[in-house]
């Protein structure tokens, strides 16, 4: 039976969505911070490409100077030292300002890494989705051979470490040189290491995404496909036009989860030389011996990416919601 309550009066979730209501203070604050963060990133990325493309990443100047923050940090730490044991909380505050100053000084390099992190995540999740949908359909509706093939792929990928998979592609199969030879790689397209990382993340996330979609497919009432077949649609056409539009909506929350995981897993690309956000931070740490501090700075980046993704997907879920279907 359908998931729809049999009352006939259920208006579904459309009536309860936040669209049209005034945002709360918390929402407004988060939205403001989001605009600031993404506004800065986009201006930074554009500026570095259009205005100063020739300057080396590590030699770029931040838009705001780090000096004042360092000044505050120095002053606070002097006070903390004078107060002795009582000054410990002020010492922590001094650390916060020092860390912020370190972050600001390195913002241009971090922005460059963030761009690759965003590219890695977005490209991989979307390419992974393209593979995951047929994979999930094969699992649920396939014959014995397709079903077992899809199952074997999913379990092999989910059952082995992502880092090992990246190593297999990069070191084991040495995909770097052949990918470097492809037209556009390193030119308009990202560098070979980034492309190989994208391949790895696509394969990996396709397996996880297919599990979310598979479980969503089984949540669609069997009568839906029967009705599609009864008007003369073939099995695949019925799956495409009737089952998938419903299943993909059911899958959005789980899929968002996978998206958010991938944002953070993308840091593993650092280990096959991709200069994404985590690797930039590691390099800065190696130069300054302040690993913890710089990792704290990029934690803020990852948090911003995750919160943005979650908010965007919630919005998307509301936009695609259908009365009675959830």
């Amino acid at each position: 039976m359908s998931k729809v309550p049999e009352s006939g009066t259920s208006a579904g979730r459309a009536g309860t969505s936040a669209v049209g209501e005034l945002p709360t203070a918390r929402q407004a604050l988060l939205a403001g911070l989001g605009v600031l963060f993404w506004g800065w990133l986009i201006v930074r990325w554009s500026y570095d490409r259009l205005v100063a493309p020739s300057v080396n990443v590590t030699d770029r100047e931040p838009f705001v100077p780090a000096g004042p923050l360092e000044g505050v940090a120095d002053a606070l730490s002097t006070v903390a030292t004078d107060l002795g044991a009582l000054g410990t909380p002020i010492g922590w505050l001094a650390w916060a300002f020092e860390t912020a100053a370190l972050g600001v000084r390195n913002l241009p390099a971090l922005a460059e890494g963030a761009l690759i992190t965003v590219q890695l995540t977005v490209v991989s999740i979307l390419c992974g989705l393209v593979i995951a949908v047929p994979l999930a359909v094969a699992r649920v509706y396939g014959g014995p051979v397709t079903r077992w093939t899809a199952l074997a792929y999913t379990e092999l990928i989910r059952g082995t470490p992502l880092l090992a998979q990246l190593f297999v592609l990069w070191f084991g199969l040495s995909l770097g040189p052949p990918v470097r030879g492809l037209p556009g790689v390193g030119g308009p397209l990202p560098s070979a290491a980034v492309v190989v990382a994208m391949i790895g993340f696509t394969i990996n996330s396709s397996a996880y995404q297919s599990e979310y979609i598979r479980s969503a497919l089984t949540g669609v009432d069997a009568g839906q496909l029967t009705a599609a077949r009864a008007i003369g649609l073939g099995k695949l056409a019925g799956i495409r036009h009737v089952v998938l539009p419903q299943a993909l909506r059911f899958a959005i929350p789980g899929w968002t989860n996978e998206f958010i995981y991938l944002i953070k897993y993308s840091s593993l690309a650092a280990f096959i030389t991709v200069p994404e956000l985590f690797r930039r931070a590691r390099d800065i740490g190696a130069d300054t011996f302040r690993f913890t501090d710089i990792y704290a700075v990029i934690a803020v980046f990852y948090l911003a990416f995750v919160l943005t993704t979650a908010a965007a997907m919630r919005h998307f879920e509301d936009r695609t919601a259908i009365p009675g279907l959830n």
Binding site: D221, T226, A227, A228, I231, G232, L233, G234, I322, L325
Partner: peptide, 20 residues
């Protein structure tokens, strides 16, 4: 079978309307 089903309509107890 698909051609047959085009010529033979079916109405279900549980309606089975395409929910989306």
């Amino acid at each position: 079978a698909d051609e047959l089903r085009r010529q033979v309509g079916m109405v279900f107890q549980d309606f089975n309307l395409f929910a989306h």
